[in-house]
Write a protein that binds this DNA or RNA. Structure first.
Length: 683
RNA sequence: GGCGAGGUAGCUCAGCUGGUUAGAGCGACGGACUCAUAAUCCGUAGGUCGUGGGUUCGAGUCCCACUCUCGCUACCA
C-alpha cells in the first residue's frame, strides 16, 4: 500500500546562516524522506524560512535595507546551502508569503470565533526614540539583584537572577541607549488551557517519543499558560485582521509556514492541499524538530491546528543538539562551523554518512568527533563499500568488455541474504535508527569483501580461469549494487554515480530483489575521494574568529591597503552587500601614542548613539595625536572587534593611501563636510 | 536550585525483560595478499562495565547513596 506522507523540518530563522547544527536535522529528515521515496511511497518534504520578528526588523534597519530584501537574500543563501548538502526539499518556501498570511488569518479568526482569544493589558518597556516596544533582549541595564552592569532585560548573566525588564536599574534601549518608558498596550492571548484535554489525549496517542511525552507531563503539571500572540507595531510580520498596528507574533505564523509551503507546492503541481491538512486527511504528517522548540510544536501548534480547523500531526520527532569533539559548538575553538565553510573544504556526503552513523530515534545529543569522522568515513565508505566496485570493475572491463554474467552465478546464498537483510535495514530506517541501519549495511560490506578475498579474482586472472573470474566479479558488483541501494538515502550523489556505473534506471529499494545479469557497465572512475585530514584543520581555521587566527600585528586594524602590484578595482558587489558595512561619522575625543607600538595611535571615538569606541589605527606616521583631537572622521562601526596586544580595537577608521605604500606618511584620514554629527550613518 | 540524559576497551558506540569466559566498528600491534583510492583478509593486545553499598544462587543489566559530565530550566516560550 502506498502511503501519503508529508514531512517537515523546522524552519530556519532568516537572521542567521545555516550551520552544522541545523544540518543534523535536515540531513536526518532528508534521509528519512529519501528512504520513503525509495520505498515507492508518496512522500513530500516541505520547509521554509522563518522570516518575521523584531530581530529581522532591526537587522534590516541596521543594514539600511527593507526587511523583505534581507529575507530574500537569506532565502537564497539558505537554499544554496541546503541544495549543496543534497537536501531534497520538494518545496522550500518562506513565511513571508501570501499563503502564510492567508492561513495565519484563517487560524486566528477561527480561534477568535471559537472564543479562544482573550485580550489582556500588558505593561512593557517602550522606547520613545525608536518608537517601539522593546523585547527583553533589546533592553539592557543594571541587575536589580547583584548590580552587574549591562545585563539583558530578562535575566542576569552574572548572578543568573531573573526579573522583569521593568525592574532593571538604569535600563536603556539596546538600539539607541535612551531610557525606555513603561507603556501599556492590549495584547491578544491564545487560551492554551482550553485545549488541555485534547493535548493530553494527543500526547498519549503515540505521537511523541516517550521521553518527550514525560516532558509534557511536567508542563501539564505546572499548568498551561495562555500565550501572547500579538505584538505592537512597528513589527515585521502580518497585521492582525480587524486591528490596527497589531501584528502576529513571529512564533504564531512560523509553524504555519509548513502549510504555506505545502499550499505553494500544491498550487504549482495541482495536488490537493486539503488531503494533507484538513480534518479527515488520511495522509501522515511528521515534523522533525530540535528539543529546543518542543513547547511550540507539541503544545501551541497542535492546539492551534485543532482550534483553527485543521488536522493535527501524526508525530513530532525530536532530536538532540550537535556537539563537536564532545563540546558545545564554539566560535573560538573553530567548531561553530557554517554549512558554507564546511562545503568550501569537504564533501557533504562525508557529513551525511557520519551523522547517519550517529543518529538514533532517541532525543540524544550527537557528537561530531572529527578524528572519528575521518576514520569512519574513510574506512566504511571508501575502504569497504566503494572499494568493492573499485577492485572488481576493472576485471569486468578488461576481460569481459564490461558485461556481467548472463546468468547469475552460484554465490553460496550471498545475494539472497543481502536482499533478506534489506528488511531489517528498512525497519531501522523507518524507525529512524539510522545508526543501526549503517551498522547492518557495513556488516554486509565486510561479507562482500571477504567473498572477494576468498575467491581471489587476481589469482583467477593469472591462472586464466576466465569463467570463474567473470562469476566472482559479477557477484561482487551485484553485492555492491545492493549495498548502494541501501545507502542511497544517505549518499544520493554516490548512488547517482553508482546508477551511472551500472547503467541502472534507478536504485529503488525493491529494484535489487533480482540481480543484474548480462548488464554492460560503464568504465570505472573514482566514486569518492578519501577525507583529507588537512582539510578538517583548514575548515576549523576558517571558522575561527579572525583575531585568534593571526599573531598580533600592530598595524592590523589600520587602513593599510593590501599592496598588490596590479592595481585593479575589486569584484563588483550589490548594494545590499555594501549596506552590510555600517559606516558612521565619529568624533575623535582622545588620541594617544601607544606604548610599544610604533605605527599605532589609540583613538577614543564618540560615535553618537552608538556610544564611545576605542580604535587602534595605524596612522601614527602621518598624524600627531593632538592634531586629531576634536576632528570628525569615518568609522566602520560593525567591524568585528579585534583583540590586540594593546587592547581591544572596536572598529576601524578610514584613510586613503598610495597603493605602493612607499611613503609611509602619505596617509589621509577621511572627514565629512562641516555639519555632520557623530553617529550619523554614511550611505 | 529544579528536571532530564549519561558515565562500558585509545576513539565512537551495542549490550532486550538480571544468567555461559562483556561485544562491534575504528585505531594500535603482528602477519597475509596485491585486484583495488597504502584499500582488503587473518590474528593479537587492551576493559575490576564512574565509586561504594545492597537485593539475588547469580548484576554492566534491579535498589540506595555518592561522584563526575552534558543538556534543559529557574514563572519563559
Amino acid at each position: 500500500m502506498i502511503r501519503r506522507i508529508l514531512v517537515t523540518s523546522a524552519l530556519p530563522y532568516a537572521n542567521g546562516s545555516i550551520h552544522l547544527g541545523h544540518l543534523v536535522e535536515t540531513i536526518q529528515t532528508d534521509i528519512w524522506v529519501r528512504f520513503h521515496k525509495a520505498q515507492g511511497h508518496e512522500c513530500r518534504y516541505f520547509c521554509a524560512d522563518d522570516t518575521h520578528g523584531t530581530p529581522i526588523m532591526i537587522r534590516a534597519r541596521n543594514e539600511g535595507i527593507a526587511p523583505e530584501l534581507l529575507v530574500a537574500r537569506m532565502h537564497e543563501e539558505h537554499l544554496a546551502d541546503f541544495r549543496d548538502f543534497h537536501i531534497g526539499f520538494d518545496n522550500y518556501y518562506t513565511t513571508h508569503s501570501a499563503e502564510n498570511r492567508h492561513f495565519a488569518e484563517e487560524i486566528y479568526l477561527n480561534l477568535l470565533q471559537g472564543g479562544h482569544i482573550a485580550v489582556e493589558t500588558v505593561h512593557q518597556a517602550y522606547c520613545d526614540h525608536d518608537a517601539m516596544f522593546l523585547p527583553d533582549r533589546f533592553i539592557r541595564g543594571t541587575c536589580p539583584k547583584c548590580g552587574a552592569a549591562d545585563q539583558y532585560g530578562d535575566s542576569c548573566e552574572h548572578c543568573s537572577a531573573t526579573y522583569s525588564p521593568l525592574d532593571l536599574k538604569d535600563s536603556y534601549c539596546a538600539l539607541c541607549r535612551e531610557h525606555p518608558v513603561t507603556r501599556s498596550s492590549e495584547h491578544f492571548f491564545f487560551q492554551l488551557s482550553h485545549f488541555e484535554t485534547f493535548l493530553k489525549d494527543w500526547t498519549r496517542s503515540g505521537a511523541l517519543q516517550s521521553e518527550m511525552a514525560n516532558k509534557l507531563e511536567e508542563w501539564y503539571a505546572s499548568g498551561l499558560k495562555n500565550w501572547d500572540i500579538s505584538r505592537d507595531g512597528p513589527y515585521f510580520g502580518f497585521e492582525i485582521p480587524g486591528q490596527s498596528n497589531k501584528y502576529f507574533y513571529v512564533w504564531l505564523d512560523a509553524p504555519i509556514g509548513y502549510m504555506a509551503s505545502t499550499l505553494h507546492y500544491c498550487n504549482q503541481t495541482g495536488i490537493s492541499f486539503d488531503e494533507y491538512w484538513r480534518p479527515g486527511s488520511q495522509a501522515e504528517v511528521y515534523h522533525f524538530i530540535g528539543k529546543d522548540i518542543l513547547y511550540f510544536h507539541t503544545l501551541f501548534w497542535p492546539a492551534m491546528l485543532k482550534g483553527g480547523g485543521f488536522r493535527t500531526p501524526t508525530s513530532v520527532f525530536v532530536h538532540g543538539f550537535l556537539t563537536v569533539n564532545g563540546q558545545k559548538m564554539s566560535k573560538s575553538r573553530g567548531t561553530f562551523i557554517n554549512a558554507r565553510t564546511y562545503l568550501d573544504h569537504l564533501d557533504p556526503e562525508y557529513l551525511r554518512y557520519y551523522y547517519a552513523c550517529k543518529l538514533t530515534a532517541r532525543v540524544e545529543d550527537l557528537d561530531l568527533n572529527l578524528d572519528d569522522f575521518v576514520h569512519r568515513v574513510n574506512a566504511d565508505i571508501v575502504g569497504k563499500v566503494v572499494n568493492l566496485a573499485s577492485r572488481t570493475a576493472g576485471f569486468i572491463q578488461k576481460s569481459f568488455a564490461g558485461q556481467l554474467c548472463e546468468v547469475y552465478p552460484e554465490d553460496g546464498g550471498l545475494y539472497a541474504s543481502f536482499v533478506q537483510a534489506g528488511n531489517e535495514i528498512a525497519q531501522h530506517y523507518e524507525e529512524r535508527e539510522f545508526a543501526k541501519a549503517m551498522r547492518a549495511i557495513m556488516a554486509l560490506a565486510d561479507q562482500a569483501n571477504r567473498f572477494i578475498e576468498e575467491n581471489a579474482p587476481w589469482n583467477l586472472a593469472k591462472q586464466g580461469d576466465l569463467t570463474k573470474l567473470h562469476q566472482v566479479c559479477s557477484v561482487a558488483l551485484n553485492l555492491f549494487r545492493v549495498l548502494m541501494t541501501y545507502l542511497a538515502p544517505v549518499l544520493p550523489q554516490l548512488a547517482e554515480k553508482t546508477r551511472h556505473l551500472l547503467n541502472l534506471n534507478d536504485l529503488h529499494w525493491a529494484s535489487c530483489q533480482q540481480p543484474l545479469n548480462g548488464t554492460t557497465i560503464q568504465p570505472f572512475s573514482h566514486l569518492m575521494a578519501r577525507v583529507d585530514a588537512k582539510r578538517i584543520e583548514a575548515m576549523l581555521s576558517a571558522s575561527r574568529p579572525l583575531e585568534e587566527n593571526s599573531t598580533p600585528q600592530p598595524a592590523a586594524p589600520a587602513p593599510v591597503p593590501a599592496p598588490s602590484s596590479a592595481e585593479s578595482a575589486s569584484a563588483t558587489i550589490q548594494l545590499d552587500q555594501f549596506a552590510q558595512v555600517d559606516l558612521r561619522v565619529a568624533r575623535i575625543r582622545q588620541a594617544e601614542l601607544v606604548e610599544g607600538a610604533d605605527k599605532l595611535l589609540k583613538l577614543t571615538l564618540d560615535v553618537g548613539s552608538l556610544g564611545t569606541r576605542t580604535v587602534f589605527a595605524g596612522i601614527r606616521a602621518a598624524y600627531q595625536p593632538e592634531a586629531l583631537v576634536g576632528r570628525l572622521t569615518v568609522v566602520v562601526a560593525n567591524l568585528a572587534a579585534r583583540k590586540m596586544k594593546f587592547g581591544l580595537s572596536q572598529g576601524m577608521v578610514l584613510a586613503a593611501s598610495h597603493p605602493d605604500a612607499t611613503d609611509k606618511t602619505a596617509l589621509f584620514l577621511l572627514s565629512p563636510d562641516a555639519g555632520a554629527e557623530p553617529g550619523m550613518r554614511i550611505q
